[in-house]
Design a protein around this nucleic acid. Sequence first.
RNA 1: GGGCGAAUACCAAAGCAGCCAACUGGGCCUGACUGUAAAUCAGGUGGCUACGGCCUACGGGGGUGCAAGUCCCUCUUCGCCCA
Length: 402
Amino acid sequence: MKIDTDVKKIDELLNRGSEDIIDREHLKSALLSGKQLRIKLGIDPTGPKIHLGRSTVLFKLRDFQRLGHKIVLIIGNFTALVGDASDKDSRRPVITEEKIEENLRDYLSQIGKILNLEDIEIYYNKEWFGKMKLEEILKISMNFTAQQMIQRRNFKERWEEGKEIGLHELLYPMLQGYDSTVIKSDVEIGGFDQLFNLKTGRDMQKLYGQEPQDVMTLKMIYGLDGRKMSTSWGNVINISDEPNDMFGKLMSLRDELILDYFTCCTRLPMEEIDEYKEKLDNKDVNPKEIKKILAKAIIENFHPSEIAQSAEKEWENQFEEKELPSEIEEVVVSENEKNILDLLVEIGLSKSKGEARRVVEQGGVKIIRDGNTEVKNDWQETIKIEKGMIIQSGKRFFKRIG
RNA sequence: GGGCGAAUACCAAAGCAGCCAACUGGGCCUGACUGUAAAUCAGGUGGCUACGGCCUACGGGGGUGCAAGUCCCUCUUCGCCCA
């Protein structure tokens, strides 16, 4: 494949959404040289789903791929057993091998939505680490000191706070760096918190007599609520989310985050994004309209554009026109009448009667019959069950009696 | 090997015998406002209930006592310090 050395594209590649690049000049001239570069990304298969926050590196890889460079994925099925500490302030639980296998299957199909998997190299680092001898590991370790490893910010913090740091965690950057020597990477990219690991890769390559890779870390994008995007916070958008769902989540994004999302999670031209920025700054538009464009653009990364369109329409109907969602799950209730709390629990809108009672008392439950909406706030009420009636709990949850 | 300390609900963290289904903050849920938001405000956040209460819960087990997250014993796990 021919390597694209268009300066404009290369500049965008280097600047868009990136945080640190070492060594920037070196990387730029490598990209301009016309030589095919090997771009490494290490993947730690600890969770089954890829969220938007973690997808930014995949978009960046795609940029490299589209210029004709070779993507090399390292599946950290060995290092996952150790557990990288980059994004945790306390020790990550060690994950079982079976679990890793399980996650892995899902992973590739999700990655395939962004990258062209036909033209990619994939390695499992268990291949080499599984066979490595203790002697060799010790030899490598001799080249690093505890002080060096502990410099890393989150180790330092944990050290100072008296939190534990597993000995194995100290080895992690070294192992990740060793991967780079095996696959002879020219560039390694990673999230904003990967800088230390990536730099260790440079050191390792030097030790092995290779030219050190250039490294690029990407800006972090925040979760919906402005905190770091993390599955355990529940503020994530997974790239496998249903389009309608994804649209709704993106619309509830904080306004301040709009531009970052445009930059990092879409590939709309920067000129266009700058226009949006200007409009937002001048308060020329309702930010809502810009968010709609964003939501569509992000969905189009993963789905055909008709689907993004219809997600938008669905959202507008439901939230702007206050119409019912076009698809409501049907449930069957055998009785003719039922106490409202029992009903809510039975059809799955509440997980206990206590919870149902709270929502009812607070006016969150509505019954819709023939287009007439009735708020139910008496928890003792018995509801007559009719086919086709709709029960709504809160703003977002609906069930239809079938 | 020795010493000390900790384990509380989704998370963090109070409580140190009765007023504890457990302060407070975050999260989450509901409502108001709004741009669907964010911010703000109000309410809620174990289960069941004949709405009087009842049951289950403060790492596990055992004990003292009318009464135990709260005291004692023991086990487990974790942290810190000394060697």
